[in-house]
Simulated scan of single mutants.
Amino acid sequence: MSVSTSRVGWTGRLAGLLFLGFIQTVNSATETVPPGSVALSRGELYSYLSNKTELRADGPTHYSDAGKLETVRDGKRFKGSWTTHDDGSVCRNLWGLEGKFCETYVRDGERIGVVINGQFQPAPDLEPGNVLDSLNASGLFSKQQTIDLVSGKSVIWGPGRGLYYATDFSLEKIWDGVRGWGTWFVNDDGAVCWQIPGWGPTPCEAYYYRGEELAVVVDGKHGKATEHVEGNQLGSF
C-alpha cells in the first residue's frame, strides 16, 4: 500500500489530541527525584526556555524573551506570562484561565527534568523559536492514511528490535530478541495502537508532516518517524 502525501487539514479537535500525545496511560514515565539533582537557577531557566517552544503534553507553549507566553489547549490559543524563581520553578499564568501553574526544573547530570508532585520526569522537548504556526499547519494523518502507512510494513528500531503490522491487523514485535504477537488498530483520531498480551499498555502513535519530514508523536513526545519498510523484515533477526 502507498501513503498519500497530502497534508491533513488542521482542526481544533485534532490540535488538542496531537499535543495530548494519544496516551493510553494517564501519566508520562516518572521516577523518584534523583539524589544529587540540582534546581536550575533563574538565569539558567531563562536561557533554557527563552524564545523556545516547549512541546508539552498539555499543549505546545512558546516562551518569549519578554516574559510573555502563548500556548495551544484543545485547539484554542491562549496568551499569558511566565516567570522564573530562585527555587528553580517556572510559573505560567494564562490569561482567561484561573490559577497559576508552577513546575520545578532540575538538572541530573546531563538530563534536565521537571519535578511534579514529588516525581521526576524528563523535561518536554524544545524547538527553537515560535513554531506554533508551523505545527498548526501540519495536521495529523487521518485514520486511512495511517493504515496505508503501516499496513504490511515493518519498523526496525535497531538490532533485535522491530515491529511488523500485518495486513490482517495482527502484529509481531521483537524486543531484545524476545518475540510477541498481538493485534494493531488505528483509532478514529488516526493514531495507531497495538496490544500484545502480557506486554502491558503501549502508547499509541500519531503521524504528521513537519515540513517535508514525517514526524511521530508518542506519549506527548515529538520526533522523526522511523522508516516503514515493505513486508515482514523480522525474519532477519
Results as ranks from 00 to 15, higher is better:
residue 165 Y to V: 08
residue 82 W to C: 02
residue 63 Y to S: 03
residue 228 H to D: 02
residue 213 E to N: 09
residue 49 L to E: 07
residue 13 R to A: 15
residue 158 G to I: 11
residue 86 D to P: 00
residue 29 A to M: 04
residue 104 T to Q: 06
residue 222 H to C: 00
residue 201 P to E: 07
residue 153 K to T: 00
residue 236 S to V: 09
residue 30 T to M: 07
residue 112 I to A: 03
residue 145 Q to A: 12
residue 228 H to K: 10
residue 106 V to C: 03
residue 192 V to M: 03
residue 229 V to L: 14
residue 234 L to W: 10
residue 111 R to A: 15
residue 6 S to N: 13
residue 175 W to D: 12
residue 71 T to R: 03
residue 56 R to Y: 08
residue 70 E to C: 02
residue 38 V to S: 06
residue 58 D to W: 04
residue 33 V to E: 02
residue 126 L to A: 09
residue 212 E to R: 14
residue 163 L to W: 01
residue 109 G to S: 07
residue 194 W to G: 00
residue 220 G to F: 02
residue 35 P to L: 13
residue 223 G to T: 13
residue 62 H to Q: 04
residue 63 Y to H: 13
residue 61 T to L: 15
residue 133 D to T: 15
residue 131 V to N: 03
residue 117 N to A: 14
residue 99 G to R: 10
residue 73 R to D: 10
residue 68 K to V: 03
residue 53 T to D: 05
residue 221 K to S: 14
residue 98 E to H: 11
residue 129 G to R: 12
residue 154 S to E: 01
residue 26 V to D: 09
residue 173 K to G: 06
residue 112 I to N: 07
residue 38 V to C: 04
residue 130 N to Y: 07
residue 3 V to R: 01
residue 233 Q to A: 06
residue 61 T to A: 14
residue 225 A to R: 03
residue 191 A to L: 07
residue 139 G to Y: 04
residue 143 K to L: 06
residue 39 A to F: 04
residue 204 C to R: 05
residue 58 D to V: 08
residue 111 R to L: 12
residue 168 D to H: 14
residue 80 G to D: 14
residue 151 S to H: 05
residue 129 G to F: 04
residue 39 A to G: 10
residue 176 D to G: 11
residue 120 F to A: 02
residue 55 L to R: 00
residue 25 T to S: 15
residue 94 L to A: 12
residue 69 L to F: 05
residue 126 L to H: 01
residue 82 W to L: 06
residue 191 A to I: 08
residue 235 G to R: 01
residue 120 F to H: 00
residue 88 G to V: 13
residue 39 A to W: 05
residue 135 L to E: 03
residue 40 L to F: 00
residue 199 W to S: 11
residue 225 A to I: 08
residue 204 C to K: 09
residue 21 G to E: 08
residue 163 L to Q: 12
residue 44 E to Q: 13
residue 16 G to T: 11
residue 30 T to I: 08
residue 173 K to D: 02
residue 82 W to H: 06
residue 87 D to A: 04
residue 24 Q to C: 07
residue 155 V to L: 02
residue 205 E to V: 10
residue 192 V to H: 03
residue 7 R to N: 12
residue 60 P to A: 11
residue 71 T to Q: 01
residue 62 H to L: 13
residue 180 G to Q: 10
residue 47 S to Y: 07
residue 153 K to R: 15
residue 59 G to E: 08
residue 121 Q to R: 15
residue 142 S to D: 11
residue 212 E to P: 05
residue 173 K to V: 09
residue 187 N to F: 01
residue 75 G to P: 10
residue 33 V to D: 01
residue 86 D to G: 07
residue 58 D to S: 14
residue 202 T to E: 12
residue 114 V to H: 07
residue 223 G to D: 09
residue 117 N to Y: 14
residue 167 T to G: 06
residue 181 W to A: 15
residue 88 G to F: 09
residue 35 P to G: 08
residue 191 A to F: 05
